[in-house]
């Protein structure tokens, strides 16, 4: 192991990790928004739109992110829409993640006993108050493990961003291997970098999940 090499290029990894984290976080947050909207139109049974949401979810979940990115980055300019590499990356990640988040939120909503809704309405709560105080806290508690798994999954998926010339962790590793043939060092640092990003996230979600269960949320006892 060439520790001198590793020390020299560590700043490049740190910088790339920053990009991975920044784009990943943006994608995750926007995915939650898209997922919430999709989940809402399906539960509120908004005509036509719910079918569109259903079709989108199937499309996004059954095509690879790399293909989605190529479509955005190389396909759209052909019809005159030119987006920056970062915009393409976040859009692609959101397109993919929105579908997964919609399904995670749906599983949470479906786990709430329909009678809970009636009990809230019978107390004279408005539908909005009922959603906020009765339904969502229970639905989110059930959905948290799936949301956490999706967040970790989405950050890992950012490793295809290098395909559209973004200098993320994967890009740096491939670059260093190509230039210096230090394959072992470059890949070790790549692995450690992803672990450094994702382990804390996984642990944070596990703790949150345990706390919610301890607080007596949902049916999990």
């Amino acid at each position: 192991m060439d520790t001198e090499f590793m020390r020299k290029f560590l700043p490049m990894y740190v910088k790339a990790a920053g990009l991975t984290l920044r784009l990943g976080a943006a994608g995750i947050l926007l995915s939650l928004v898209v997922g919430a909207v999709c989940c809402w139109v399906r539960f509120a049974k908004v005509p036509v739109v719910r079918r569109v949401a259903g079709a989108y979810i199937e499309l996004a979940r059954n095509t690879p992110l790399l293909v989605q990115l190529f479509f955005l980055y190389f396909g759209l300019p052909k019809v005159g829409i030119k987006l920056s590499a970062e915009t393409c990356a976040v859009t692609g990640l959101t397109f993919l993640g929105g579908a997964y988040m919609a399904e995670a939120l749906r599983s949470g909503m479906e786990a709430v006993d329909p009678v809970q809704n009636e009990a809230g309405l019978c107390l004279g709560l408005t539908p909005a108050q009922n959603l906020r105080f009765v339904i969502l806290p229970q639905a989110l508690a059930t959905a948290i493990p799936a949301i956490g798994a999706n967040a970790v999954f989405l950050i890992k998926e950012t490793s295809v961003f290098s395909a559209v010339a973004l200098v993320d962790l994967m890009y740096v590793a491939k670059d260093l291997i190509g230039m210096y043939y230090k394959t072992d060092e470059a890949l070790l640092m790549l692995t450690v970098a992803y672990l450094a990003l994702l382990l804390p996230l996984s642990i944070a979600f596990s703790l949150l999940e345990r706390r919610l269960r301890h607080a007596g949320f949902g049916r999990a006892v």
Partner: peptide, 11 residues
Amino acid sequence: MVFQSYDLFPH
């Protein structure tokens, strides 16, 4: 209204 299944809010 009170139901057969109590339906207290579990959280």
